[in-house]
């Protein structure tokens, strides 16, 4: 990657969840790994996330979900399809196994469980963007 290229990642909390600490910490990790993070914060609808991702031309979308609003993530995936916009979407949070499976089926590219190491997240993003 040349001197002037950077991986650009959108990080957002989805739906009505107010927990921002996880998303903020991940953003910090990604910055420390040399990535540019467009941080959206809380109370973001799938519609708002997709629109921001398009305007910002990001390489990856990272969604933080502190349990239970998977329906919103499903909607996000549907919306991306509808808009013919495809970049990898990863989710982090406590997502029960069967919900995780359903999300992967919907096209989510990777789910990071609680306490995933920063290294594993960074490595994954680098590998997927290079592809």
């Amino acid at each position: 990657m040349s001197n002037n290229q950077r991986i650009k990642v959108l990080v957002s909390v989805i739906g009505l969840d107010g927990h921002f600490t996880g998303a903020e910490i991940v953003s910090r990790y990604l910055m420390d790994a040399g990535m540019e993070v467009v941080y959206l914060g809380i109370y973001q609808t799938p519609e708002m996330i997709v629109s921001a991702a398009i305007q910002e031309n990001v390489d990856v979308i990272g969604i933080s979900s502190h349990a239970a609003n998977y329906e919103q993530i499903n909607l996000l995936m549907e919306l991306m399809k509808k808009n013919n916009f495809s970049v990898p979407v990863m989710c982090g949070g406590s997502i029960p196994p069967q919900d995780a499976e359903a999300l992967i089926k919907k096209g989510v590219s990777k789910i990071f469980l609680p306490h995933s190491t920063s290294e594993s997240i960074v490595d994954y993003i680098v590998s997927i963007v290079k592809k």
């Binding site: 953003s27 910055m31 420390d32 790994a33 540019e36 941080y39 914060g41």
Partner: peptide
């Protein structure tokens, strides 16, 4: 240090994103 950045301005403007 890292060459990375957190671009946080959008947080305040997201209501216009649609």
């Amino acid at each position: 240090l890292s060459g990375g950045a957190i671009l946080g301005d959008r947080v305040r403007m997201q209501r216009h994103s649609l």
